[in-house]
Design a protein around this nucleic acid. Sequence first.
DNA 1: CTGAAAGCGCTTACAG
DNA 2: CTGAAAGCGCTTACAG
Lengths: 340, 340
Amino acid sequence: MTGVRRKSGSVPVSLATVAAAAEVSISTVSRIVNGQTHRASRETIERVRGAIETLGYRPNQLGRALKRGESRVVAMLTANLNNPVMATVASSAEAALRAAGYVMILCDTHDRPELQDEYLKAMRSQAVQGYILVTNVKSPGLAEFVARGEPAVFACRRNPYASGAFVGIDNVGAGADAADYLWSRGCREPAVLFPAQSSSTIEDRLAGFSMRLLELGGRCSKAEAPGLSHLDVGYEAARSLLDRASLPQGVMCLSDQIAYGAHRLFFERGLRVPDDCVMVSIDGSTLSSWLAPWLTSVRVPYHEFGRHIVDLLGEIWRGEASGERILPHAFQSDVSSDFE
Amino acid sequence: MTGVRRKSGSVPVSLATVAAAAEVSISTVSRIVNGQTHRASRETIERVRGAIETLGYRPNQLGRALKRGESRVVAMLTANLNNPVMATVASSAEAALRAAGYVMILCDTHDRPELQDEYLKAMRSQAVQGYILVTNVKSPGLAEFVARGEPAVFACRRNPYASGAFVGIDNVGAGADAADYLWSRGCREPAVLFPAQSSSTIEDRLAGFSMRLLELGGRCSKAEAPGLSHLDVGYEAARSLLDRASLPQGVMCLSDQIAYGAHRLFFERGLRVPDDCVMVSIDGSTLSSWLAPWLTSVRVPYHEFGRHIVDLLGEIWRGEASGERILPHAFQSDVSSDFE
DNA sequence: CTGAAAGCGCTTACAG
DNA sequence: CTGAAAGCGCTTACAG
């Protein structure tokens, strides 16, 4: 039709178009597209494949999803994409999903309950087939979500309402390892810096650290600070620590970002790490070997999370009982081992 | 039906269920859901709303998208999610899309042409309504994509095949600013470190820097290195630089990540920045103020990109001529201005 | 003010 | 070996 201006894009080719071009029925094309080649003659198959090729046909996933009742779309809800840890998990999940033939919708809840609920509803509307949750502050919507038994894998932080599919590390153990490390460096009364906004991760790391220190015969002072960005948390917590006490021999930071923030305050006050104060944290971000060689950190294999998350999703979809995947953590024996 | 075990999740409520509950037709419910309240009686509206409420109905976007021909899903293709710059752009785009009622499918192409093409096809299958491209290495699929006139906004890097909707900064100008800065610090023959894998961003920054330096009467040596991670690029480029020449007074790094990488090599060789060598780069990552106070960087407002990207997408959908958005860049006058 | 019907693109028994 | 028909959940002229 001349005179008709299309805004943009080109009309996608439908099954009907292919069928017309190949002079067969829609059903036949559909079967061939879906690999049911044993139910058609050689010539038909070739004719249909030719038409598909020349027309550039690709099945519309909306139609398929509507009919089949499975969308091959997975939603990932993350607490804060600007946190490199979350970005790494998102990236590894995305790669694993793609390899399995799924696509990922990404949602950033900023750790806000209302936003989390909004996204949970929106994703249900999208008819996503599964959920990856790296957020889960408590919220009414999440409670209902869990009660409905939606197919979800929790990563890093546990489901706050029930047990179930989870990918993470032994955070209690990692906290204990950090205590051992400081102890071995001679710190008997270290401080621990942590965020006011808690989560199972934070609680576990904190508990593991304190308990181990107690076992060893030490004790720790605590400093917390509010904020979504752990950089700010570390800076402010370190400030409140130094404002009320003298510098401890060692500081445990519950995440690498907290360590970065604390380090900056130390730096501003002329304190050197580790010369004036030993610092340990948990995460083991790659970036530290580049920019924070002064930091010792328990390494968490975040780049492996995606694979296990997708494995667990598969188990859930197949109706298998789906458990936890606790991945190994370890100190980086040598920072330079991170290079290859 | 007793005995039937559902794997997980609960059956979503459809328009038909609501209609039955409210004892009206599907059409009527649909109209009310879509706000066409002026075509129904008060009682009907209330009855329907009641049913929607108690049943927890939410429209299935698949059905809606299929019928309307618009999915309210946007695909974002990014070159490397683990790069904080990309993560920031992704995060800002996600927020802007949500505010406009869209959801974002995220794809990580790892800057590989085949993967880029695979994603481009997969997204077409998903019937996404628009594209945000922060990747665009050249590839056959991207060329066809552009030729088809698909609704897309390019961010950071330009469309390699045509002009059109773009959000970014004046990279030539930013490169020139970096040259001015080094010049003002007395560097007459600085080195520039850049990745072997190029893009419009890299080319423009490089051209702006060299040209300006020439104008000023200086000259620069160049060092490049391969790799997807600019951390590696910076490290290797710095090595090749130092292995063949003496330390220049100043070094220009085409991205913050390159600067981090170069700094590490300098550090390993006992060289101090900026005492032994001034370093400047482009990006102005927030992280630098925490971990790399030795770095001076041209600040790019990546967190603003999302807003403009979504604006441009809207223009494209409305059929308006859609142009470029060149956002302002500037040196961080004072690193501490980043705190509030 | 309300509903029956067609159709978006697809899959899948069912019939031939 | 192949096709007509029903239906996934929705919207929207059209008729009443």
